[in-house]
Structures are given as structure tokens and as C-alpha cells.
Design a protein around this nucleic acid. Sequence first.
DNA 1: ACATTATTTTGGTAGGACCACATATCACCC
DNA 2: GGGTGATATGTGGTCCTACCAAAATAATGT
Lengths: 278, 278
Amino acid sequence: MYCGTKMDEALMNRGDRPKVAESGKATPQEFPDCPSPLARVGRRASALHDHLASVILRGDLAAGNPLPSERELMRQFGVSRSVVRETIIALANQGLLKTRSGYRPVVSRPDYDSVLGSMDQLMAHLITQEEGVKNLFDSRIFFEAALARWAALNARKEHIQDLEQKLLRNRKSIGVRTAFEATDIAFHDVLYAIPHNPLYPAIHRAYVEWLRKPWSCIESTEEIDFMMYGGHEAISKAIIARDPDLAEEALRRHLNTAWEFVRSNFDFRTGNTRNKSL
Amino acid sequence: MYCGTKMDEALMNRGDRPKVAESGKATPQEFPDCPSPLARVGRRASALHDHLASVILRGDLAAGNPLPSERELMRQFGVSRSVVRETIIALANQGLLKTRSGYRPVVSRPDYDSVLGSMDQLMAHLITQEEGVKNLFDSRIFFEAALARWAALNARKEHIQDLEQKLLRNRKSIGVRTAFEATDIAFHDVLYAIPHNPLYPAIHRAYVEWLRKPWSCIESTEEIDFMMYGGHEAISKAIIARDPDLAEEALRRHLNTAWEFVRSNFDFRTGNTRNKSL
DNA sequence: ACATTATTTTGGTAGGACCACATATCACCC
DNA sequence: GGGTGATATGTGGTCCTACCAAAATAATGT
């Protein structure tokens, strides 16, 4: 039993309102706007959360900057550490903050990537069944087919050049697993980039992330790589030929082939590659 | 200063391990599997979170059922209430739990909707700029155009019937704002339903949710409703005629018209309808 | 049987004390 | 001086106790 005199924190008086700047310590870093009585309705944590979220999202707190420490925040907003803590956790879960033990939380303004990234965990579980992976993969085929069609109709010459460059690199990396995977992704990424909508590349990255495990069960022999490359080449040619139907069909064929590999080699229960020869 | 003898909670002894069933109180509801020493690595909250998440996602805790109380959980897992609390907050933010003050948290297994729903808050802020709304709207047009094309090529007769039914209802509700909006959504929903991928309807609901405010700035006079209905009719006809190009074009025209309304009437700063006649 | 009032339960919050770890500071030795 | 190790301080993570308001439940009076 302590009841000792040592006090760790929470030294500010609460009787009425948190007095501002009561000690001579001189608040190290003041906060953008808010002396902020912090609306008294509902959960305090929610109020603080909304406030900080809007501060971050409005850009008042630039990404990369650290947040004040938890102790500092409780002083500035006149709430307990529990509330500050809840808030930070929630913000971190949303991708607005990155927390490392021992460091102050770091602001990270969310872009489309982190928005999609917030679905990672849930998506990971939704694809523990074949149904889930299939739905996801299907949606990718669907979306990318539309992209191929769009590319065939709207690609500019710089896109075409990009496409050819990525195709070449892909060819050169046949047989080298990691390199081939990377150039494969880079090739597909061109399709997502052509419409100039920043959402699409983010969607691509999300697909790659979510389908990483199923995808990685596709073996990487020289033959298979070559076949995959062939698919890319066909897509590329159709796009260059400005033939949307052909482009879509080539892409569907390509990804359907990939799906067949996944379906036969991927163990949907364990999430690993099935050792079918065993 | 208290140091009193009253004890609220945390009555179990910690010296070593939490003794199981130390009091005669008889744990009211046992937990699916885990006496669970709960891996000692990393953050305790993360461990608990992962554990509970997997329990829920595996379906061991059916949706709708309440979780044990926070006090109960700390007993069962031998952690402090702070940790339990953190965990619950995180799970709630992911949509795996629903919390109401005063009630026990309720399990809600996530489907595609709640996965997309977890992006709501962030998306709400990403579309506070015209850029964001435009990107989102564009992606919808893109996706839905592909759906229209798909529908023209693959719709079965029951889909066609559904389409006609929804179209009829839409026509009947011209002039009645709320009804027209509802039947409008219902019509578009048919397109998302045709490929039989459960992701798509969820995506549609997400679009509707995210674009609700911009969309609602489209006035609802009899004329405008009629024009919108005309778009639906054109799409429908093209699909029935099995003409993918026409279907895509009709849909693009329809949604682009809607976008023009949004662009001219929506105040991207405030997020409200702009009062242009003022 | 029903309305009304205690009692208990439950989430929400406050506040205090540690710990492990990271960093900053500074004396100390070569 | 330039390391270099010890020490002080800051920070997130955890535990604990306490209290409150609202909800649920039990007890009670009519």
C-alpha cells in the first residue's frame, strides 16, 4: 500500500476548469488551435477523437510530426490519460497515427492507401475461405478487365511507352522469382495508372497485399514465368492495337490462368501453398 | 487521499497467475476456448485483440451475442481493465463489436459491408475536397460502366425482370423525393447484383453512403426526376437489347449528368448544397 | 399483478503508481 | 578533445483503485 507522496502525473488541478499555463514549465509545444473545452456531450474520448482527427485531416498537423505526449495532451484538454489513450488508439487504428512503444505517436495523414489499409485485417479473415478469395479475385479480374478496355481506348503515347518498358523489364526477369513478381506487379500497375485516378493505384496495391499469399503459391519456373509474360504481352499488344475487346479478353485469359494456379495450389484453410506432390 | 479499504474491482490476486475460480461467484459465462495464458510477447492489448478477433471471426462467438463484461474479461484473461478496454475499443472500431454505454458489447461478425464501413470516417474526410469527390465519383462511373457492359452480355432473364420491375417503380415515384431516391438506388443495385459477387452490392452501398451528401444536392423536381428516369430507361433498354457498348455509354451519360449537377450545386468546402440563387 | 424503489451490474472516466525502453545529459577516462 | 559509460528524464504500456451515471435486476410496497 502506497499512498506515498510521489506523484507521477496528473498534477493539474481539476476543481473547475484546467487552468491554462498554471505552472512555469511553459508548455513545450502548443497545439494548433484548441484551448478547447472539448464539448461535454457524449463520450469524452469521442469528442477528443473527433477533434484530433479533424486537426490532422485538415492538415494543421503535418504528417510526420509527432503528437504531444499523452501527459501533455491530458493537460491541454483537461481529460484523464485513459481518454487520451483511447483516442490515440482509435486514431492509430484508423491510420491517422503511427505508434511505436517509447516514441510519441506520429501523424500520418491518410491517403487512399491507408484508407484501404484499414481493411487489411478484416479482409485477411474474409479470405480464409475459398469463397472470399474467389470473390476478391473475381472483382480484380472484373476491374482490371475494365482497365484494359479503358487503356485500349484512352492510353496516351507516354502510357504506351511505359507499358512497353515495364513489359521489357518483365521479360528480362523471367526465371528470377522476386524480380519477376516485382516486374509483374509493375506491369499491371501501368493499367491502374492510365485513368489518372489516384484511387486506382491504391486499389491495385490493396489487391496485391490482400492476394499476396494466394498469389505467391504460383510457382515460378522458367516456363510458368514465360507463360505469364506471354499474357502480359498479349494484353500489351491489344492495347497498342487499340482493340478494347481483345485487350479485355487477353487480360481475362491472363488472370483466369493465374486463378487456376491459385485454385489448385492454394490451401484455403491454412492459407499456405498446398504441397500437392506429397 | 483515500487508501481506504473499499475495493471496486480487480480483486483477484496477481502475485503469480490469476487463480481460476478463486471466488465462489461462479463465472457466469465461460469463454469459448481460452483459459488462455495469452502470449506474453508484445503488447498485451494486441494479444488479446488478436485472440478475440479470431474467436469472433472464426464464428465461435455468434453475432448478436454479448461479450462478457469488461470485469469478467480481465478475470478470464488475467489482464487489467485498461487492456480489456483498449481491446474492446479496437474491436469496435473495426466493426467486430458494437458498444453502447451501459450495455455489454455485442458481437457483430463483419461482412463486406462492415469492412467497407470501416473506411467511412476516413472517406468522409477525403471527399472534403472537390478532388476527392471527383475521384470517388469517377471510380463509380468507371465501375458501374463495366457493370452495365457485363449486364448487357451476361444478364439472365430473372435479372432483366428485376431490372424492369425496379425501373417501373422508379417511374412511379417520380416527383416524390424520398421514394425516387430509394427506387433510384434500387435500380442501380440490380446492376451490382447481376455478377453474383457479394462484394459488389457492398461496394454499391458504400458508394451510396460516401456520396450521399454530394448526391443529395441534386434537386428533385418532376423534370429532373424524369430526366434521371430517362437515363435509367436508356440503360435498361440497352441491356435488354444486349448491346454492351450502348449500355456502357448510356450509363456513362447518366452518371455524368448526375456529376454535373453535383459539381455545380455542391459546396465542397462546407459539404452542403450550395445556395446558388442567393 | 403492477408500479416503485433499492441494489447490483456495467461501461466511462479520473488519477496514481510502476515498468521497459529510448533518449538526453554529463561526468569520467583514455 | 573524443569517445564512453552511468545517470537522469521522457514516453508509451500496464496495473490498480476509485467513483459516477445509466441500465438492469431484485426487492418492496400497494
